[in-house]
Design a protein around this nucleic acid. Structure first.
Length: 743
DNA sequence: CTCTTAACTTAGCATTGAGGTC
DNA sequence: GACCTCAATGCTAAGTTAAGAG
């Protein structure tokens, strides 16, 4: 019975894909419905449920499905929890405005043409002062801002920096200054110029392939076979991955085998014709043993390796940019291996080839010491382009895209950009209301294009969706963002669960992470969506007259520097600020306040759909924590009892010593209570965080000055919020934000 | 306008190693 | 001192955006 279901399931899916194919370039896609673990499961369950409804049966499998379904529901509600939405809507100013304009307006016919470019006035008086060139104005604005801030700071700085500094001291100061250079207090480069001087040592290449010992055999069709150097290297890539599920996937195996054969000698090629007959078992074991041996290394050996790494870092991990030694982010070239795309990627398993000096383009100053290629090699090119920030680039062979070596987030060049990003988001804050009322107006436009644009923008604003560029079919996993949503990704519910006009989203977004959400929308949006979906197939674009380019051009007209992603930054940051205000209780102790911070952070992560697979050891670590809590509770009970008896004792004895005992017992109880509290808070935090990743929003979406201000206001050490790396990245914010900072 | 490409940001997972526990 | 755990870090894929060619 269950077998039949599976078949049906497959069949259905197959059809679904087939259908798609008609429209798109014929691509022989496998009906294998493997999304990555986390998203995949739920997705599958949904499909299963559908099947289940069709013909019910009581097999064991079905019971499981049922369970899964319940779980699924739970998860759903977690991500679209009313609690959260209410809050979010408040802070975003989405207090569901009444839309009682005549309904009929909506349904009027559209003129198919007449591109009347909706002229928008620059509403921001500050903006008027901007020059037309967008980047420039952005820079100027910041320039202005910085100068102002420097001005404000001057008195403070003067005495430190310049004021009482004798010639003798200068050298010492310079060195110290070097350690923590405050680039944010300095003049910026003119527009478009990224640096004036750049010198570095070039990349570190992946170590050359080392042959396996002869005793480690590879077998083909049961017979041992000595592979040639090239073929062996590629074989080891596969052998190392044998534990991974994806080495069982058809696409992966097919791609790998195809690329592997390219590396074989003609002899090998004629012998090895089927991957299924390959036995990498011994190789696999060998690498496992190697890994184990590495773990078992003595302290000295480990120390040696560490020192070697440090040497490498010191030599290649830094560059000189404009008189400052700056950390490079990724100075090591990606080693060869098998490509593993995320989600159901058509290219998984392909060989990522080794990058050679001849592939490398070096970028540095003309007047710098140009890095020297490894002996016997030369660079592909050396250029001197100070309009870009990268030091090294090469073209990767899977997608043919360019990869770069750039600077660490703590560098001036990255920091300035980051700061600028938040300043743009803050400018959006000033004009967001106007923009919102504009797109609400546009819902009624007689032009389809404008309506689509307005609805899409509403989603981007309200749900923090990504822009959604179109992607080349068959080159990447099938994922979408706002503009590339297809009809099959949303379901309209005129009424559901007591709510009207609900849109149910279900699609795979960036990194094939599933986005699932049920959102009540305004009636006008709902009606528009119905209209957009009319006469369309599930695999058709929802916004067929829109793409990211059109959308971003429009946004550019609304505000200098405005693009789709600014909404994500803005909504994330404003949500954090708002939630922090709401959740922080002045009387709480430090751990409780940090829990509040994490909850605010969490609200943002939910908004931005930053998920993670629950850690493999989650259940266990949760249990461990519970054990600790229970133990602490027992201790507390004991301590209280002891305190009580000590008190009784003191009452009788009335001497100093017993009084002291009471005091110390009291202290012990207090300490235990505090410890217990801390543990419980930790447990709550961890539980709530099971499948939510806070890091991404913290690092990329939340204006660090909000967090810094919060820390200062409540006297929380920033170290509790930002670890060392994060503090380096956000040094500018930690230095400049005071407790009154308002995003 | 469409298509392509370069440059840069954002993303989650795997590995590592510091610091705690046994 | 061995072992364990989880946060930090490393890695690199997958997005966004602007610009330029056709």
């Amino acid at each position: 019975d269950s077998h039949k279901h599976k078949d049906k399931h497959k069949d259905k899916e197959h059809k679904h894909k087939e259908h798609k194919k008609d429209k798109e370039k014929d691509k022989s896609k496998n009906s294998n419905s493997e999304y990555r673990d986390f998203s995949e499961k739920k997705h599958k369950d949904k499909e299963k449920d559908k099947v289940k409804h069709k013909d019910s049966s009581s097999s064991e499998k079905h019971k499981d499905k049922h369970k899964d379904k319940e779980k699924h529901k739970e998860e759903k509600s977690k991500f679209s929890s009313d609690d959260f939405k209410v809050k979010k809507e408040k802070e975003n100013g989405f207090s569901s405005p009444s839309c009682n304009r005549s309904e009929n307006e909506d349904d009027c016919l559209f003129s198919i043409k007449e591109d009347k470019p909706l002229k928008r006035h620059r509403d921001n008086d500050e903006d008027i002062a901007y020059k037309p060139k967008k980047i420039k104005t952005e820079d100027e604005k910041r320039e202005k801002k910085r100068k102002q801030e420097v001005e404000n700071d001057k008195s403070k700085k003067k005495s430190k920096d310049k004021g009482a500094m004798g010639e003798g001291k200068k050298k010492k100061m310079k060195k110290e200054e070097e350690e923590k250079w405050k680039w944010w207090e300095e003049e910026r480069h003119p527009e478009g110029i990224k640096w004036k001087f750049l010198e570095h040592k070039g990349p570190v290449f992946a170590p050359a392939y080392e042959r396996m010992p002869d005793k480690v055999k590879f077998y083909y069709d049961g017979k041992t076979m000595k592979l040639s150097l090239g073929a062996e290297e590629v074989a080891t890539f596969f052998a190392k991955m044998l534990d991974h599920e994806y080495t069982t996937k058809d696409i992966f195996r097919k791609n790998f085998f195809k690329d592997w054969r390219k590396e074989m000698t003609s002899e090998e090629k004629s012998t090895i014709t089927s991957l299924d007959k390959c036995d990498f078992g011994e190789m696999h074991q060998y690498f496992k043993a190697q890994a184990e041996a590495r773990k078992q290394m003595s302290k000295e050996e480990k120390q040696k390796i560490k020192e070697e790494n440090e040497r490498l870092l010191q030599e290649y991990g830094f560059c000189m940019m404009d008189n400052h030694r700056e950390r490079i982010a990724n100075f090591k070239i990606e080693p060869p291996g098998l490509f593993r795309g995320r989600g159901n990627h058509p290219k998984m398993g392909m060989l990522k080839r080794r990058i050679m000096p001849e592939d490398i383009i070096i970028n540095c100053s003309k007047d710098s010491k140009v890095p020297v290629p490894p002996p016997g090699h030369k660079w592909k090119e050396v250029r001197h382009d100070n309009k870009v920030t990268w030091l090294v680039s090469w073209t990767e062979n899977i997608q043919g895209s360019i990869k770069y070596i750039m600077l660490n987030p703590s560098s001036r060049i990255k920091g300035e950009k980051d700061w600028q990003k938040y300043e743009t988001a803050r400018r959006l804050k000033k004009s967001v209301e106007k923009i919102r009322s504009q797109y609400r107006e546009d819902w009624k436009s007689k032009e389809m294009k404008i309506r689509q644009r307005a609805v899409a923008l509403y989603f981007i604003d309200k749900l923090a969706l990504r822009a959604g560029n179109e992607k080349e079919e068959g080159e990447t996993a099938d994922t979408v963002g706002c503009c590339s949503l297809r009809v099959e990704h949303i379901t309209l519910h005129p009424e559901i669960d007591g709510q009207e006009y609900v849109v149910e989203f279900d699609f795979l977004g960036k990194d094939s992470i599933r986005y699932y959400n049920k959102v009540p929308v305004e009636k006008r949006v709902f009606k528009n969506l119905q209209l957009f979906m009319e006469n369309k197939q599930p695999e058709d674009d929802l916004f067929d007259r829109l793409n990211t380019s059109i959308l971003n051009k429009h946004l550019q007209d609304l505000m200098e520097g405005l693009t789709a992603k600014v909404f994500r930054t803005y909504n994330a940051s404003i949500t954090l600020q708002q939630q922090l205000k709401e959740l922080t209780s002045p009387d709480d102790n430090v751990p409780a306040k940090i829990l509040s911070y994490n909850r605010a952070n969490r609200a943002v992560a939910i908004l931005c759909n930053h998920q993670r697979a629950p850690p493999k050891t989650f259940e266990k670590s949760m249990q461990n924590l519970q054990v600790k809590i229970d133990a602490k509770k027992d201790q507390l009970v004991d301590a209280r009892r002891e305190l009580k008896s000590a008190k009784a004792d003191a009452k009788v004895r009335r001497d100093e010593k017993s009084k002291k005992t009471v005091e110390s017992k009291k202290k012990a109880v207090q300490r235990l209570e505090e410890q217990l509290m801390k543990l419980e808070v930790q447990a709550t935090d961890r539980e709530e965080n099971k499948q939510i990743a806070l890091g991404t929003s913290k690092l990329n979406y939340l204006d660090p000055r909000i967090s810094v201000a919060w820390c200062k206001k409540w006297n929380i050490p920033v170290e509790k919020i930002y670890n060392k790396t994060q503090r380096e990245k956000f040094a500018w914010a930690i230095d400049m934000a005071d407790e009154d900072f308002e995003f």
